[in-house]
């Protein structure tokens, strides 16, 4: 018999429901393996792009006041998909499923990266169509039903049996419609949400925006209510499973987003507050809550907040 916090996402079996969010730690295989050892049920790579990109100048990330979270405009740095052979090789030894996150500036770029990455046999491919921090990438797709459909179906065509999971933007006017479009295009799961934004912080003494890119995406506890609402709306409109994330920091947060309809839970900014040990903490608090409240599986908890 399995543990009560075993989970499953589009056929991918997870020992724990907590999944490392893209952009956190996922630069090399060493640190991804460490996240797995610390209790992550699966790990996601930093979004991988078509060509080598440096991203923006610093400041790229800093903490907001009083535990609300982080603001970032890292700007999708990537060595480029062809330039990561060593990491792919080493990731084969990772003890938990590895999700490859990819991005592109056009459908053609997404397809080329996806086709190559699929050859490395990741457990899933996550489509980052929702990054708010680059002019030509991401969010353009994630806020349009038609563009989300087009990129999802084009990528689905070239990756064979590997499950495909578009990552959605909280900026979409109607996230349920976007989710539905992705499902119709062949998505196997949905990931929600990417950072909320763009936002801006000005240092009033410097009289300048703090982020070098001036604007950036918000993550962490402040965006949790939006993440919960997005997962709720997606759960009502699609049948495919949902990876819910945005501000999940403790076991109760995880319970909440699972009750909204998530099959698994992404963890990002919590790593800033609690270190890589964030996974173990959320897992054990979630397990304790489920035991205390008589739930024997994540499946039984999922979506129960809906009528």
């Amino acid at each position: 018999m399995g543990n009560i916090i075993n989970a499953s996402l589009a056929g991918v079996e997870l020992k724990t429901p907590t999944i490392l969010a893209s952009g956190f730690l996922g630069v090399n295989s060493g640190i991804l393996k460490r996240a797995a050892e610390c209790g992550a049920g699966a790990v996601t790579t930093k979004s991988i792009g078509f060509e080598k990109r440096d991203g923006h100048n610093n400041p790229t990330v800093f903490e907001l006041e009083a535990g609300t979270g982080l603001i970032n405009a890292v700007g999708l740095p990537t060595p480029g998909f062809r330039n990561m052979e060593e990491e792919w090789l080493e990731l084969k030894e990772c003890k938990v499923p590895v999700i490859a996150s990819i991005f592109g500036a056009s459908v053609q770029e997404f397809v080329e990266v996806a086709e190559f990455v699929a050859g490395k046999k990741p457990a899933m491919i996550e489509l980052n169509i929702s990054c708010p921090n680059s002019k030509s990438h991401g969010q353009l797709f994630g806020t349009s039903k038609e563009a989300s459909f087009e990129v999802t179906s084009a990528v689905k065509n070239v990756i064979g049996k590997i499950p495909l999971m578009p990552k959605l933007s909280p900026q979409a006017l109607n996230i349920a419609e976007i989710g539905k479009a992705c499902e119709e295009a062949g998505a196997d799961a949905l990931c929600a949400i990417n950072t909320l934004g763009p936002g801006m912080v000005i240092n009033i003494e410097a009289r300048k925006p703090v982020l070098h890119y001036k604007t950036g995406g918000l993550s962490g506890p402040a965006i949790k209510p939006i993440a919960v609402r997005c997962v709720w709306q997606l759960f009502e409109s699609v049948k495919i499973p949902i990876l819910g994330l945005g501000g999940i920091t403790n076991g109760r947060d995880a319970v909440e987003i699972i009750q909204a309809g998530a099959s698994a839970v992404g963890v990002g900014t919590a790593i800033h507050y609690n270190g890589i040990e964030a996974f173990g903490k959320i897992n054990s608090e979630l397990e304790d809550w489920m035991q205390a409240n008589g739930f024997s599986s994540i499946e039984k908890l999922r979506g129960i907040a809906h009528d």
């Binding site: 630069v27 060493g30 800093f62 982080l70 890292v74």
Partner: peptide, 21 residues
């Protein structure tokens, strides 16, 4: 080379250790 300085982005990673954290 560092970006966040907070132990979240792993820009500064050596093997499995974060130089900033």
């Amino acid at each position: 080379f560092m970006k966040c300085g907070l132990g979240v982005c792993a820009q500064c990673v050596i093997d499995d250790q974060l130089v900033c954290k």
